[in-house]
Design a protein around this nucleic acid. Sequence first.
RNA 1: GCUGAGGUGGCGGAGCGGACAAUCGCACCAGACUGUAAAUCUGGCGGUCGGAAGACCUACCUAGGUUCGAAUCCUAGCCUCAGCA
Length: 365
Amino acid sequence: MDKPTSFKYQGGELPLPFFFPDATRAVVKTIDSQDLVSTKTPGILVNTYHLFRELGSDVFDKFNGVGNFMNYHGGIISDSGGFQVMSLIKRKEGLGKVTDEGVTFKPEGQKKILLTPEKSIRFQMSLSSDMLVVLDDFTDPKANYKEAKVSVERTIDWAKRSKAEFEKLCQKNKLTKGRKPYLLGVVQGGEFQDLRKECTKRLVEIGFDGLGYGGWPIKNGGGFDYKSAETIAKYTPKNYFLYGLGVGKPDEIVKLVGMGYSIFDCVLPTRDARHKRLYVFNAASIGKINLKDKNFYSFYTPNKQKYVLDKTPVSKACDCLLCKNYSKGYLAHLSRMDEITALRLATIHNLRFYSLLMEKLRENY
RNA sequence: GCUGAGGUGGCGGAGCGGACAAUCGCACCAGACUGUAAAUCUGGCGGUCGGAAGACCUACCUAGGUUCGAAUCCUAGCCUCAGCA
């Protein structure tokens, strides 16, 4: 019953902990699969909702999985579409609804689709991902206790159905030990610790390979909700993967790794890159990165006029395509002209920052 | 030299007698972004005081003038651009 030491995927095993960026639509925005490899990123998270809506399973049956489709051969985790319950339905009314059966999505100008726990699993199987995530009912960040409880009950019910469908498909496809992907349950319950505890325990009764810290990880008053993360970790068996879904900022990841979390994904490094925010270690070299420093990293805004004449690299504690080959001056020019290459270089840089961060965390795991 | 058009904030460019410290865009400054409806979104952007509402000052090429009131009308000057010589 020891904690997991590696994550098996189709290409071998990945050491823990690791961070996967989000390739929602089977692409990490602005870069391609070869760029991704160059950042030493070990894997990606793809999204069921988007790929199901935009492509359907025929493509993935034909290509034999999303990895082959992308010609990307790192680890692949597929998200269930559970996050879209919040981002598309609960955050804004009228784009769909949630019932016990599943989730109906109907964004403006698009056809209505129904995603059930079973459908989500079936589709994720066609993606041939290494870890599947159960469809969950995202607890609205503004939910009161009663509403949070409803989302927890539904999440547990859906988890049961997902597990049953998963086992059925594994049997049917003769996916036995070694070839069987992982299945992740997702804990909901908002900031209510007794709900988090109950959800965790009841998911463990159903049986999964890991549990995800679900919901919105930022408290209503602001600040990361470490308490819920701790509650989940406390009641999760040691041999389970603990996954911080959508987490997060570098310092948040460092803290969660300390609690036993070993899998992370987040849009921040890639979105921030596109929004002109680069992550830089406050260190003179990669060897001198010290995560114990309170301020071990800072932000760099690439498009300032004052950088145009700067011949130094963005970071000396980085070995990415950008930092090894180009100056702040050149990047400033590309960024100021809104050249798409600036976004690509920034994305590559931020992903290397995150992969370096995880390399450092692995040293003490 | 003649004819025509025009000179507005860092730049482009609205406004063409009161509602103008002056629409809008760019640039600039600050902030946000957490299982991606996001190469996006907010806010600020003449000066001084104020948290804000607001108050006062200096402003639409220059100098005069008309008017209760002018970036807007008149006169002169300077300058720019286009076409013709």
